[in-house]
Nucleic acid binder design. Structure first.
Lengths: 103, 103
DNA sequence: ACTATATGTCTAGACATTTCGACGTATAGA
DNA sequence: TCTATACGTCGAAATGTCTAGACATATAGT
């Protein structure tokens, strides 16, 4: 039984924590699943297929970006988003490895 | 761009959704990390190392159990919990595979 | 400089989650 | 049956999250 609550949570778990929070919402899951392989979408495109208002979509995109799930780049007037696949893959792999090793 | 919002979300994602929600909370992460390899803990033990009240811990344990993250069994007066490692491993693997295949 | 387009931010209200005390249930032992 | 222990549940209050309108910023074209 590990009673040391003050110890630093493993880095893989810190990443995973934000990913869990970011993807624990159905709207954000749908946004993620809107992307097809290697695709880049701007905000208007995502709003168009969403049932939410633009500010709400912007809010969710911010959470996904800050969690590292999505990357973004501004090109002219538009901001393009894409799935940060290497980050997601690494985070899942790290969590999987931590599970095997400690739990 | 996938615009089909009505289609069924893949089963691996449905599992993962609940796991994300369940583990997207710091208290629940700490509860999970309290367990050591193969360990079974009763509610009182978990409450003892938590900063939360028993009803609050009970609430979080219920969410973790319903998400499949923890298993539980009543033995006499006590209810023991343990980490459902095979389920977690499978869920992470499925999500990892979905990521590679579709995103 | 002016206008239109694309996006982000702020704020208030709506909504959902979390928390804990109080109460109820179940089991074991005297 | 009575008492003590271990849990779960209910309900109200506190807290947190989400949403959308209004406003602000930034870019491109005229």
């Amino acid at each position: 039984m590990n009673t040391d609550y003050s110890r630093a949570i493993p880095e893989a778990w810190q990443h995973m924590s934000r990913v869990f929070t970011a993807l624990g919402d159905e709207h954000r899951q749908r946004i993620l699943l809107t992307f097809e392989r290697g695709e880049r979408l701007n905000v208007s495109q995502i709003v168009a297929v969403s049932t939410l208002s633009r500010p709400a979509v912007s809010h969710h995109l911010k959470i996904l970006r800050e969690a590292g799930v999505l990357g973004s780049e501004k090109v002219g007037k538009e901001v393009f988003f894409w799935v940060n696949k290497p980050f997601l893959a690494e985070t899942f792999d790290n969590t999987r490895a931590y599970l095997e090793e400690h739990l």
